[in-house]
């Protein structure tokens, strides 16, 4: 059965590694649902968080082939239940339309969203959450003059301890 898997990859910080990792996935004709890269919290070690929708046996193979890359220190995968994860979404909406009634304000309260910036023409709303949650707000805001929308890749922390943090 296909489902979402989060692949966490700890690597050296070297040029081109992103391409080397994604090519393992594209080679299998698989789409990347989301991707995030950042420092890992361990000095000099970089972290990739990649979400794919696939069947587990295939994910096992992908992870092994990613870990095989010379500059990859560790690659592990988790199902959604095994991680705490978030995405951040930014919404740019027309100030005028959004102010027409109090719905937007109510919605922001209900959704734990916040206003990052308010200009004469537009305002920027921020919401973090799972994709379904940020998507829900997106659908709601559409009629209120949505000008622009962007959603980040998933960042994810695994619930089980990772021994890598003890090694380095």
């Amino acid at each position: 059965m296909k489902q979402n898997f989060t692949i966490s990859i700890f690597t050296e910080n070297s040029i081109g590694l992103l391409s080397r990792i994604t090519s393992v996935i594209t080679k299998r004709h698989l789409n990347i649902e989301s991707l995030n890269t950042s420092e890992s919290g361990i000095d000099g070690i970089h972290r990739f968080t990649i979400v794919v929708e696939a069947e587990e046996p295939l994910v096992v193979k992908l992870v092994k082939q990613i870990e095989k890359q010379v500059e990859v220190i560790q690659a592990i995968y988790h199902q959604d239940e095994e991680t705490v994860f978030q995405e951040i979404a930014l919404y740019k909406v027309s100030t005028e339309k959004a102010s027409e009634d109090n719905l937007v304000e109510k919605l922001i309260r209900d959704n734990n969203a916040r206003i990052l910036s308010m200009e004469q023409d537009f305002m920027i709303i921020e919401k973090t959450g799972h994709k379904e949650e940020t998507q829900e707000l997106l659908e709601f805001l559409r009629p209120y003059g949505l000008i622009e929308f962007v959603r980040s890749g998933r960042v994810s922390v695994m619930k089980p301890n990772n021994e890598l943090y003890n090694e380095y």
Binding site: G16, S19, R20, S23, K27, V70
Partner: peptide, 14 residues
């Protein structure tokens, strides 16, 4: 050539 050879090398470096 680094990008071109990436999927067919064990490692490459410029």
């Amino acid at each position: 050539i680094i990008s071109i050879s990436m999927p067919v090398t064990k490692w490459n470096h410029q």
